[in-house]
Simulated scan of single mutants.
Amino acid sequence: MKRRTACHAMLLAIMASPRMTWAQVADRPARLAFLVEPALDAPLQQAVVKALREGLRTLGYIEGRNYSIEFRSADGTFARLPALASELLRQQPDVLVTAWPAAAMAAKEATRTVPVVAVSVDNPVTMGLAQSFAQPGGNITGVGSWAVEIVAKRLQVLREFVPAAKRFGVLFNPNVAGPGLERAVADWQKGLGLPIHAYAASGPGDFDGAFAAMAKDGVGGLLVFADSNTYTHRVVLNQLCLQRRMPSVWGGRDFMTGGALASYQSDYPDMFRRSATLIDKILKGTKPGDIPFEQASKLELVIDAKAAKALDVVVPPALLLSADHVIE
């Protein structure tokens, strides 16, 4: 009996040992990995990388002392994500951080064991990243960005800009659009009371055809989805909006290069700073499946008054008053 009790106590001690947790790394610096589809240019370095490091620093993590981080970017090429995810996983990171839906889905396909913190994703349940917000249940947790709800708000903003429009369009990337897009468009259409047409574009070769189809369909305003494709080619798309005199609302301030009327989006830096808390919990032994998915809490409305003038669009005073930033 004494021997059985001693063995039982030893088993409990082993199970409670930090080495048995998902990623307890008290005896060495934590290894983090970061995967993103678009190029990590200056705006993303500021909004994403700097914000993540700030969040970690606030929690006592000092790069080079108690953690390291490896970055991989697909430079806007969707097809590169699976190989990059595998490359990062071979380095045996304690936590893999992903930015935006495409990278999160690549991580989901690449591992079922390494903890993943997916930042700025759409609904993680409908994407198959989690069983529920409160109890993800697998190896992935993160921060959602109110995708469906915020798109409805962007459409309302667009309607305030062009109240006489008879129909709207949404430009999406078929590589990352989920199976629920058709239903979502129907819901947005019902809520707005206007027909909404969806136009697929997976790269620059599709842009002219999409805009030509919009003109043929009589689209009076465009909502451009935020993804790596539209970010990578934002300058071309902004120019097309000017050339085609197409009022547009976008999903992030850094997407605006002179042709977009406005952006309404979750605050990216805030989300990536907050993700540091989730990373910290995992490194201290909490399973990702037990860490609830968070939702973005800060939203930002940016209006480009110069673009409005170029497009001969009057900015409603109410929108000006509610804007967080106005580009003059």
Score class of each variant (00 low, 15 high):
1 M>H: 15
73 S>D: 07
189 Q>F: 08
210 A>Y: 14
86 S>M: 09
266 S>Q: 13
326 V>S: 02
47 A>L: 13
149 E>L: 09
147 A>Y: 14
304 D>H: 03
168 F>V: 01
226 A>L: 04
212 A>F: 10
276 A>R: 00
284 K>W: 14
10 M>E: 08
182 E>N: 12
228 S>P: 11
300 E>S: 09
61 Y>G: 02
41 D>F: 12
170 V>T: 08
221 G>R: 03
269 P>K: 05
143 V>L: 08
115 P>E: 06
84 L>G: 09
214 M>F: 06
169 G>S: 01
161 F>T: 00
212 A>G: 04
246 M>D: 04
309 K>R: 08
254 D>Y: 13
203 G>P: 04
17 S>P: 01
110 A>P: 01
212 A>E: 11
267 D>N: 15
316 P>E: 00
225 F>D: 09
142 G>E: 08
218 G>A: 03
207 F>P: 03
98 T>M: 07
314 V>S: 12
212 A>I: 07
286 T>R: 12
261 L>Q: 06
280 D>H: 15
5 T>N: 01
302 V>T: 13
148 V>G: 09
26 A>S: 14
125 V>E: 13
53 R>Y: 09
116 V>S: 06
296 A>C: 03
242 L>T: 11
189 Q>G: 01
14 I>V: 13
141 T>C: 09
40 L>W: 06
7 C>Y: 15
215 A>G: 09
320 L>H: 05
318 A>I: 12
210 A>Q: 09
140 I>T: 05
41 D>T: 12
298 K>T: 10
175 N>V: 06
40 L>S: 00
223 L>K: 07
21 T>P: 07
313 V>N: 01
291 I>E: 04
326 V>C: 04
155 L>H: 09
134 A>N: 06
99 A>K: 10
309 K>Q: 09
232 T>F: 11
22 W>Q: 05
323 A>F: 09
176 V>Y: 09
156 Q>C: 00
156 Q>T: 09
289 G>A: 01
227 D>H: 08
308 A>L: 10
150 I>C: 03
168 F>H: 02
3 R>W: 14
6 A>W: 15
254 D>M: 10
16 A>M: 11
58 T>P: 00
35 L>D: 04
207 F>M: 01
239 Q>V: 11
272 F>G: 02
278 L>A: 00
164 A>R: 10
237 L>W: 07
311 L>K: 07
29 P>V: 07
30 A>M: 01
292 P>T: 14
88 L>H: 06
250 W>Q: 05
14 I>M: 10
24 Q>D: 09
155 L>W: 14
52 L>C: 03
106 A>D: 02
134 A>E: 13
204 P>E: 12
169 G>D: 03
23 A>I: 08
168 F>A: 02
31 R>A: 06
104 A>G: 05
105 M>K: 14
328 E>D: 13
118 A>C: 13
199 Y>L: 00
49 V>C: 08
61 Y>T: 03
203 G>Y: 14
161 F>D: 00
312 D>K: 05
23 A>N: 08
109 E>F: 08
92 Q>T: 13
253 R>I: 12
142 G>P: 02
26 A>M: 05
82 P>D: 00
158 L>V: 05
241 C>A: 02
